[in-house]
Design a protein around this nucleic acid. Structure first.
Lengths: 153, 153
DNA sequence: CAAGATTGATCAGTCAATCTTT
DNA sequence: AAAGATTGACTGATCAATCTTG
């Protein structure tokens, strides 16, 4: 009864898992060695930087990063200690906090970004045709949508 | 000078990272809840099971899983304690070890596999067209090749 | 009580050092 | 010395419990 994966499906699926874990590992190493921040740090800094007013609530960060609440909370606490982000109390809703980049956080991101993006290209995007990039964009957006609106069970 | 990612490239790249981390998380949770094993456990059991004689050396597991040596070593030690795999000394090369599935390991895998594969389909593959699956297979294989034979620096 | 978020315990992954056999 | 693999210490992620405000 089980609809097992045929060889092509297996190649696609296992390949996807292996590819992304290798890419993450390489990009992580590069960031740690060259800029002293982890890939997770980078992603968080980048989201804060892209935010309209340079700050986001924990709730919003959770959604854009797709992290668990406690992971985010622990991570923000560590980054705060390291002086990369700053915590501010929420004016409207005193349950929440807004996190903003510090000057150190912003300059670290600005120094790291060019080489990081260059690595993303060299390790990955440069090996694809423009059509493949467009296919990938469609595929990820379709698949993410499929993941979100599936039945509760 | 930096070749920044345009909007389409960003959607493809960020989408890929988010998609795979969500898929991993969901599949992991399902395996833990339903079968008491992690996604990492599953992958390791599956590789051992697919091996010609039901066993593999640590070195070979490292390559097919793309894990660090010490991660694999720690993981194998834990799985050995839980009775999922069994360690055997290598006859030809006494530096190495061969790991094989125990009866428990094999039956755990056999119970977990159908629902796991079903989840991979429902969460991911079912949302794609057959063409998209073939594109993904090509893309991952191209990208993995590109990752491997890049210059040393 | 629900929503926003933190805390502490525990477990998995990584790095550097080590041990044994070739 | 190099290859195959393990170990211990440290960092990061997850789970359940908790705290505070709405």
């Amino acid at each position: 009864m089980t609809r097992w994966l045929d060889e092509q499906e297996q190649l696609a699926w296992i390949g996807l898992l292996r590819l992304t874990s290798r890419l993450r590992a390489e990009l992580h190493r590069q960031l740690v060695e060259d800029h002293g921040i982890s890939l997770a740090d980078y992603e968080l800094l980048a989201r804060l930087n892209a935010a309209p007013l340079g700050g986001l609530r924990v709730r919003d960060l959770m959604e854009t990063l797709d992290w668990e609440q406690s992971r985010l909370s622990h991570h923000l606490a560590r980054m705060e200690k390291r002086g990369l982000v700053e915590r501010r109390e929420c004016t409207k809703d005193r349950r929440g906090f807004v996190f903003v980049l510090t000057e150190t956080g912003r300059s670290t991101l600005e120094r790291a970004a060019p080489s990081h993006v260059e690595h993303v290209r060299r390790l990955f995007l440069d090996h694809l045709t423009p059509e493949q990039v467009m296919h990938l964009r469609d595929l990820t957006s379709t698949a993410m949508a499929g993941l979100s609106d599936r039945p509760v069970g």
